[in-house]
């Protein structure tokens, strides 16, 4: 079983903090507006501290989930298919047979480029698993994986999927 590159934690933690910041900003901002402008005439004193506390808690949960996600994520290029294990709360184990691979992408978002990582996306014709993404790969590994999957998909010589 192959693990992701540990640097993916940086990406996930950054995203977690960033998103938590946005949500927390809204929460605290709304609380401030409500208590300061007098829209809510006799708002409880704990409103603003409560909102800050909630925002911080949510942020911590997000960070914990992002950290844990790395520990759970695994994938393996098996004989007949690509095997992926992921999910912090709902754990998902997916098998994508190479016969069913429609096309393979590798992509790099700005944050992935700054951390020197890449994502490989595998597309099938299925309705639920239409795209399976493997994040946290070094560009070389991503390139190699994409090439391997392409070769395996061609070798498997599937008939028409639909």
């Amino acid at each position: 079983m192959e693990r992701l590159n540990p640097r993916i934690r940086v990406v996930w933690l950054f995203l977690a903090v960033f998103r938590a910041g946005i949500v927390g900003g809204f929460l605290v901002g709304a609380a401030l507006v409500l208590s300061e402008t007098g829209l809510w005439a006799n708002s409880p004193d704990l409103l603003v501290p409560g909102a800050i506390g909630l925002a911080v808690t949510l942020g911590l949960v997000r960070v914990a989930v992002a950290w844990r996600r790395y520990a759970v994520w695994r994938f393996e290029v098996q004989d007949d298919g690509l095997y992926i294990e992921r999910g912090v709360f709902t754990r998902i184990k997916t098998v994508v047979p190479y016969v069913r691979v429609q096309h393979v992408d590798s992509r790099r978002s700005p944050i992935e480029r700054t951390t020197g990582l890449a994502t490989v996306v595998v597309y099938t014709a299925g309705s639920r698993s239409a795209d399976v993404a493997i994040p946290g790969l070094t560009p070389e590994r991503a390139e190699q994986l994409r090439e391997d999957l392409r070769r395996l998909a061609i070798e498997s010589e599937g008939e028409d999927a639909v």
């Binding site: 999910g87 754990r91 098998v95 069913r100 299925g126």
Partner: peptide, 21 residues
């Protein structure tokens, strides 16, 4: 079959259950 998914929510994990799609 296009892909096979084995999913386990936290509640399912508690009872060693899983859903296979």
């Amino acid at each position: 079959v296009q892909a096979v998914l084995h999913t386990q929510s936290i509640f399912q994990r508690r009872r060693r259950l899983a859903s296979v799609t």
